[in-house]
Design a protein around this nucleic acid. Structure first.
Length: 769
DNA sequence: ATTGCTAGGTTTTTT
DNA sequence: ACCTAGCAAT
C-alpha cells in the first residue's frame, strides 16, 4: 500500500533492518534539507535516533558535529538514552537538548559578543514579572490599566520574532496606547536586564541568533562545527528558532526537520505552523518524506482520532494506516458532575489494572491544570497511586525559590531579581521603603540592585535600615568568598544555614513549615545528586538545570498512573488513556472561541484533542460531565464538546449516565441516570458533522433542573417512595440540594437499617403506588 | 516592619 | 475554592 518508489538504500545494514522503507529513506537521506512529516505513532523518535546512529556509524561523522534539538527535556532525555543504546558512549558528544538548553550553551560561549558575563542568570517568568514591575514604577506606569503580565507577553512575542526594542519594524507597527507603553517598558526592561547580567527564556533563543546574524565569521564557525542539524517537533518552532536553524546550517544546508502539523499545539507560545507547512518553499531542494504507518494505536483509536482532526482545513493532510486490528471500541462516559467523572476515571483505571495493565502504562489527560484537583481526590479515594506531571513545580515553591535566589546571587552578584527576593528571605527588618531607596539609586545610575545597595552604604544614604542592609550585603560577600571549589550541595547547606532560611522555618508555627523544611532538604538532595552525576557539576550548572528543567519531567518511576495536561502529553504513549472534561468551554477552551480568529484557535483545540487521543495504544476512554463548577462556584450546566460529534459512532460506545442530549427532553431522567447501559445516546442518532451540540441547536430547556429544599418540582418530595440497592425500599423524609447530588434523608422499611442520609444518585424513585 | 485580614481575580496550554 | 495583592492594625 505505502511501498516506496525508491529502492531500499541498504536494507542489509543492521541499523536499517528494523525500519520500514520510508523510515529508511529518512535515515539515509543525510544531505540537504529533509522534511519528515511524521504522523502520530509513526516511529518518529526511532527515525531520529537511527539517523544519528547512521551518521556516526555509516557516514563516520564525529558525534560533536551533530546537533539535535527537541522541545522538552523528556524528549531530549529519551533520545539521548536511545542513541547511546544504539551507538554506545561515543554518542555522549552529540549536542542534544532542548532549544533553550542549546541556547544557553551557545550563549555561554558567545557571552562576550552577547554582552553578558559568564555567570549570567536565567530569569524565569516570575523574575521577569518582578523586573517589569520595577520598570513600570520607574516609568510611572504602575497605575496604568495594563498589567505586568501583558507587558511580559508583549516582550516575549517580540523576542520570538527577533525584534529588539529599537527594531524599526516594531516602531512602525506600534499604534495603540498599549503598544506605545509596552515598547517603552520593553526598552527599559532590556536595560535593566543588562545591568543584572540576566536573560529570560526568549533571550536564550534570540540572543545567540542575533549574535550569529550580525557576525558572519562566527556564523561560519558555528555552522561548520555542526555538519548535521536535526529538529524534533518542528511544527512547534517559532520564528526566532527557525532563524537560528537557518544560521546554523547556512554553510552546508544539512537540516533535517521532523514534525507533524496535526500536532501543532503551541501557537500561543509563538510557534508558527507556517514553518513546517512552508518548509519546502524555504529550502528549495527539500526532500519530503511522509511517515504514515502507525505502529502505536488500534484501528478504532486511529480512525476516531483521524476523523476528528480531519475537520481541520489548514493541514498537510496525511493518511495514517495500521496493520494492527481494530481493538476495543472507544468508550465515552457521561458523568453528572466533575466529581463523578473523576471517580469513574479512577474506577476505570482500577478495572484496567485488575485486567492486567500496569498503572505505569495508564494516563489521565485534562485541558487545564485546575482540573487535576478533583482527579487527585478520586485517585486517593480509590487508593490508586499516581504522579502529577507539571502543575505546581517543585522549584516554584516559595521556600525553594528563596534558597535559589541566594544561590543565584552567589554565582551572579548582579542578579537583581534574586536580590529582591533574598533580602526578604527570611524577613530581616528591611522593608519596602529601603528596597525602594535602593531601586531608585539603581535606576539613577543604571546599575543592578545589589550594586546600588553597596553604593548607598558607601554614601551613607541607605536610610534607617542601613545597618541591616550592610549586614546582609556582607553576608552575601562572605558566602561568595568561601564557596570556591565546594560542591554545590555543600554551598546549598551553607546558604540555608547562614541566610537564616532554615532557622526561620524551624521556629515558624505555621503547620506547613515542616513541609517546607522537607522541601529544602529535597533541594539539597537534588543538589547532591547533581554534583555527583551531572556533566557540569558546578553550582552554576545546577542553577541552569533548575531554570530549564521542570522537576516532573521525569516520569514512569514506579507503578503509578500519570496525570497531566494534554499539552504535556505530547510525545508520550500509554496503553490506556483517559481524557476527561470534554465539554464546550473546556475543550475547546472558552478563550479559543472568541470572535475574529478565523477559527485558527478552534483548530488548535482540535489538534490538542488529536494529540491526546493518539497517545493511546490499546484503550481510549473519553468523558464529559453534564455539570461542572468553575471557580468553586455552583455546578453549572456543561455541554458536550463539539468534537465528540466528530467521532464516528461505530467507533465508540456510550456508557454511564443517560446521554446528555436526552436528559433535558425527558424531564428528570437524571433520577434514574445512574443505571449503566446504553439507554439511547447521541451515538445512536445520526449526527451531522460540525457539532450538533452547539447551544443553538439544543432543545429549549437550557438549565439543568435544580432542586433545593422544599422545591415543589423535586421528585424527592417528602413521602416519595425510593429504592436502594442494599438498603431496600424506603420513604423520603427530607431532601436538600439538587440533581443527583441532592442529600436525602430516608426512612427505610427495614427496621435494621432505619433512617439514613444519603446521596440521591444511590436511590431510584419507585413507580407511584 | 510585619502580620493578618479582605477583596478581587483566577484557569489555557510551557521552555 | 484558592491565591495574591493591598490595606489596616500592631
Amino acid at each position: 500500500m505505502q511501498s516506496s518508489l525508491f529502492p531500499d538504500p541498504a536494507p542489509e545494514h543492521p541499523l536499517l533492518a528494523p525500519l520500514n522503507p520510508e523510515q529508511r529513506r529518512a535515515v539515509t537521506t543525510t544531505r540537504g534539507a529533509l522534511l519528515v512529516l511524521a504522523g502520530a505513532g509513526s516511529g518518529k523518535t526511532r527515525v531520529i535516533t537511527h539517523r544519528i546512529a547512521w551518521l556516526i556509524e555509516h557516514e563516520h561523522v564525529s558525534p560533536w558535529q551533530i546537533l539535535a534539538m527537541t522541545f522538552t527535556n523528556k524528549a531530549a532525555g529519551e533520545m539521548r538514552e536511545r542513541v547511546i543504546q544504539t551507538v554506545g558512549d561515543g554518542a555522549k558528544d552529540v549536542w542534544l537538548g532542548t532549544f533553550h538548553k542549546i541556547g544557553v550553551r551557545m550563549l555561554q560561549q558567545l557571552a562576550p559578543q552577547a554582552g553578558l558575563r559568564a555567570g549570567f542568570s536565567i530569569y524565569d517568568t516570575d523574575d521577569q514579572v518582578r523586573t517589569i514591575n520595577r520598570v513600570m514604577k520607574a516609568l510611572n506606569l504602575s497605575d496604568s490599566t495594563y498589567k505586568p503580565k501583558q507587558f511580559a507577553q508583549f516582550i516575549d512575542r517580540c523576542k520570538n520574532r527577533l525584534q529588539l526594542p529599537q527594531d524599526p519594524k516594531l516602531l512602525d507597527e506600534v499604534e495603540s496606547d498599549f503598544d506605545k507603553k509596552a515598547l517603552a517598558v520593553y526598552g527599559a526592561y532590556e536595560a535593566e536586564m543588562r545591568t543584572a547580567d540576566a536573560v529570560d527564556f526568549g533571550d536564550l533563543i534570540m540572543r545567540p541568533t542575533i549574535v550569529l546574524a550580525n557576525n558572519p565569521g562566527l556564523r561560519q564557525n558555528w555552522s561548520n562545527r555542526f555538519r548535521y542539524v536535526l529538529v524534533d517537533e518542528f511544527q512547534d518552532t517559532n520564528a526566532a528558532q527557525f532563524e537560528l536553524l537557518k544560521l546554523l546550517t547556512s554553510e552546508h544546508g544539512n537540516l533535517c526537520v521532523v514534525g507533524d502539523d496535526d500536532q501543532s499545539i503551541y501557537s500561543w507560545r509563538g510557534a508558527e505552523v507556517g514553518n513546517i507547512l512552508g518548509f519546502p518553499q524555504m529550502f528549495p531542494n527539500t526532500t519530503t518524506i511522509k511517515l504514515e504507518r502507525n505502529y502505536r494505536s488500534t484501528g478504532h483509536i486511529l480512525a476516531a482520532s483521524t476523523a476528528v482532526v480531519s475537520h481541520n482545513r489548514n493541514r498537510h493532510g496525511k493518511v495514517l494506516w495500521t496493520e494492527s486490528g481494530d481493538g476495543e471500541l472507544l468508550t465515552l462516559h457521561v458523568a453528572h458532575t466533575e466529581r463523578d467523572e473523576a471517580d469513574w476515571a479512577a474506577r476505570t483505571l482500577e478495572q484496567m489494572r485488575t485486567a492486567g495493565t500496569s498503572l505505569s502504562h495508564m494516563a489521565v489527560f485534562y485541558r487545564t491544570n485546575a482540573q487535576s484537583r478533583v482527579l487527585e481526590e478520586s485517585m486517593r479515594r480509590f487508593r490508586l497511586p499516581y504522579v502529577l506531571i507539571g502543575g505546581q513545580r517543585f522549584y516554584e515553591r516559595a521556600e525553594v525559590k528563596d534558597a535559589l535566589s541566594w544561590l543565584r546571587l552567589l554565582v551572579n552578584p548582579q542578579d537583581s531579581a534574586g536580590w529582591e527576593r533574598a533580602i526578604h528571605a527570611p524577613r530581616r527588618g528591611i522593608g519596602d521603603a529601603t528596597v525602594e531607596l535602593v531601586a531608585q539609586r539603581a535606576r539613577a545610575r543604571g546599575i543592578s540592585l545589589p550594586e546600588a545597595a553597596d553604593d548607598l552604604l558607601v554614601l551613607n544614604q541607605a536610610g534607617r535600615s542601613a545597618e541591616k542592609l550592610r549586614t546582609f550585603q556582607n553576608l552575601l560577600r562572605s558566602l561568595r568568598d568561601g564557596i570556591e571549589g565546594l560542591r554545590a550541595d555543600t554551598v546549598g547547606a551553607q546558604v540555608l544555614k547562614a541566610s537564616g532560611i532554615r532557622a526561620a522555618l524551624q521556629v515558624d508555627k505555621d503547620p506547613d513549615a515542616q513541609d517546607r523544611l522537607e522541601n529544602l532538604d529535597a533541594l539539597l538532595a537534588a543538589m547532591a545528586e547533581h554534583a555527583d552525576t551531572a556533566e557540569d557539576p558546578s553550582l552554576r550548572g545546577f542553577l541552569e538545570q533548575v531554570a530549564l528543567v521542570s522537576d516532573t519531567d521525569r516520569l514512569g518511576d514506579g507503578a503509578k498512573v500519570s496525570m497531566m495536561t494534554m499539552h504535556s502529553a505530547k510525545g508520550l504513549e500509554f496503553d490506556v488513556v483517559v481524557v476527561v472534561g470534554l465539554e464546550e468551554g473546556i475543550l475547546p477552551h472558552a478563550n479559543s472561541l472568541a470572535e475574529g480568529r478565523e477559527g485558527r484557535d478552534l483548530e488548535e483545540e482540535r489538534r490538542l484533542l488529536y494529540v491526546a487521543m493518539t497517545r493511546a495504544r490499546k484503550r481510549l476512554f473519553l468523558a464529559h460531565a453534564r455539570t461542572r463548577r468553575r471557580f468553586g462556584g455552583p455546578e453549572m450546566q456543561a455541554d458536550p464538546s463539539r468534537f465528540l460529534a466528530q467521532i464516528p459512532e461505530e467507533r465508540i460506545r456510550v456508557e454511564g449516565g443517560r446521554a446528555a442530549s436526552h436528559s433535558w427532553t425527558q424531564g428528570s431522567s437524571w433520577s434514574s441516570s445512574t443505571t449503566t447501559g446504553r439507554s439511547g445516546g447521541w451515538a445512536q442518532k445520526p449526527q451531522p458533522t460540525g457539532g450538533s451540540f452547539t447551544p443553538r441547536q439544543r432543545p429549549v430547556v437550557e438549565q439543568e433542573p435544580v432542586f433545593q429544599r422544599g422545591d415543589p418540582d423535586s421528585p424527592f418530595q417528602p413521602g416519595t417512595r425510593v429504592q436502594h440497592g442494599s438498603f431496600g425500599g424506603g420513604t423520603v423524609l427530607d431532601a436538600d440540594g439538587y440533581g443527583s447530588d441532592a442529600r436525602l434523608t430516608v426512612r427505610f422499611d427495614s427496621v435494621a437499617v432505619g433512617v439514613k442520609k444519603l446521596i440521591a444518585r444511590f436511590v431510584r424513585v419507585q413507580a407511584s403506588p
